[in-house]
């Protein structure tokens, strides 16, 4: 007897397929310049994690013929929750594929995968191996490890932006079937839902684990990582430029939508990444109310410091 949080616990990882021989270019970017830790390698993949993370990976890179978003992984509380969600997804008419432990990814218990209405693939699992904190568990120094200084050194995976031809249907699926909350949304003049920020986690840099944008089904808009503070993000902007990394047009800004301070830039495959801090304060409660944005206020919502939204920002990047 007692209270218990159920269902999806946390956003765990993004799995990318890249046309990159031996992953040389992608590791050069994500490990050496972006500043993630390499936890594990197998014949096909590299598994990377953020420095403040204990779980084994937040980003999985593997060599594929074409660049693609393979899947996004979410950690479920327990096996019972995994079965419960499997049933709900199937009842919603979506086919669920079961995978054994360590299939297809190492360090993971049994999992299920399925395609959401927006066309992207999600994988749910209840068990992931831990590398442990890079600082150790005894009286640690909670500071960016020395070997990562001068890189972006993200603390955590924060959220993933997806494009969807019918954002309303994707939002409904994520809320009704997977139990996500909606912290903010953008609506058209005729009341149609164009975009939503979906969350399960209540944290300091919170309010979204999945951001749904209008566009073609099945694509990735961006991947966002957590930093502590706007000052870190400004300084890292300089490191990134020093390393020749492309900053998205319009540089760092307050993103009123999500209430973060954010910088968007591109990896060497053209995938849009974000560093963010701040974030909407929200709790996972049925009575929590979303912030509502009118499409006419889009520039205020997405790019508060700039005169107008960079039109390229609305495009998916993978």
């Amino acid at each position: 007897m007692g209270l218990k949080h159920r269902g999806i616990l946390r956003i765990a990882y993004v799995r990318l397929g890249l046309n990159d021989n031996r992953l040389t270019q992608s590791l050069n970017f994500y490990r050496d310049r972006f500043g993630m830790l390499e936890s594990m390698r197998d014949s096909e993949r590299a598994y990377l994690r953020c420095w403040h993370e204990t779980f084994q990976y937040n980003l999985v890179l593997e060599q594929t013929a074409e660049n693609q978003l393979i899947e996004i992984g979410f950690h479920v509380r327990d096996e019972e929750g995994l079965d419960h969600l499997t049933n709900k997804i199937e009842v919603a008419g979506i086919q669920v594929e079961q995978s054994a432990a360590n299939e297809p990814l190492n360090g993971m218990g049994r999992s299920i995968s399925f395609t959401i209405p927006g066309g992207q693939r999600l994988r749910l699992f209840a068990d992931m191996a831990q590398s442990g904190y890079v600082t150790g568990f005894e009286s640690p120094d909670w500071v960016t490890p020395r070997e990562l200084r001068g890189t972006a050194a993200p603390m955590f995976l924060n959220h993933v932006g997806l494009t969807s031809a019918d954002p309303g249907a994707t939002i409904d699926f994520l809320s009704d079937v997977l139990g996500f909350g909606l912290s903010e949304k953008i609506v058209s003049e005729d009341g149609k839902r164009l975009s939503g920020l979906m969350f399960r986690m209540c944290r300091d840099v919170g309010g979204q684990e999945l951001a749904i944008f209008p566009g073609e089904d099945g694509h990735l808009h961006h991947i966002a990582f957590t930093k502590e503070d706007p000052n870190d993000i400004l300084v890292i902007g300089q490191y990134l430029r020093e390393d020749g990394i492309n900053i998205d047009s319009y540089g760092p800004t307050k993103q009123s939508y999500g209430n973060t301070f954010s910088l968007h830039f591109f990896d060497n495959f053209g995938i849009r990444l974000e560093l963010c801090c701040g974030g909407r304060n929200i709790d996972a409660h049925p009575e929590s109310e979303p912030v509502i944005w009118d499409e006419s206020e889009l520039s205020k919502a997405l790019s508060y410091y700039d005169a107008d939204v960079n039109p390229g920002f609305l495009d998916h990047s993978l």
């Binding site: 946390r10 831990q130 944290r203 957590t226």
Partner: peptide, 17 residues
């Protein structure tokens, strides 16, 4: 001010000591 993130399930991650 700080951005530390916890997994959200008891005993999933051992505590720092």
């Amino acid at each position: 001010n700080g951005a530390y993130q916890a997994a959200g399930k008891p005993d999933l991650v051992p505590p720092i000591v």
